[in-house]
């Protein structure tokens, strides 16, 4: 399963490092990243492949939320199919 991860919050050192280290630790492959600063807000979108993940979807969401809480970020992860079905005919 592929998923889209979004990370939004105040910019600071180490956001990408923290998120990608967690993903790497769980065996999740990052396929694409786009990142920008919008009105002082750090905004990142990642496309990831969960097929090699060593933890459940629920566990991965919980770990990402943990990073979010520690670093003051809002991290969401949704199945890529959801976006595809909504926005692609």
């Amino acid at each position: 399963m592929k998923a889209i991860i979004t990370v939004v919050g105040k910019d600071k050192v180490g956001i990408i490092a923290a998120v990608s280290a967690e993903l790497a630790g769980c065996g999740v492959n990052i396929l694409d990243i786009s990142q920008t600063i919008m009105q002082d807000n750090f905004t990142m979108m990642m496309s990831v492949d969960l097929s090699g993940s060593s933890v459940s979807l629920k566990e991965l969401k919980a770990r990402l939320n943990g990073i979010g809480e520690r670093m003051g970020l809002v991290i969401n992860m949704y199945n890529e199919e959801l976006f595809n079905s909504m926005h692609r005919v």
Binding site: T6, T43, M45, N76, F83, N84, M86, H87
Partner: peptide, 15 residues
């Protein structure tokens, strides 16, 4: 997938 579409979907669900 562009950012606008992703954000639109998240907003629909969350807000």
């Amino acid at each position: 997938m562009n950012e606008r579409e992703v954000i639109e979907t998240l907003k629909m669900i969350q807000e």
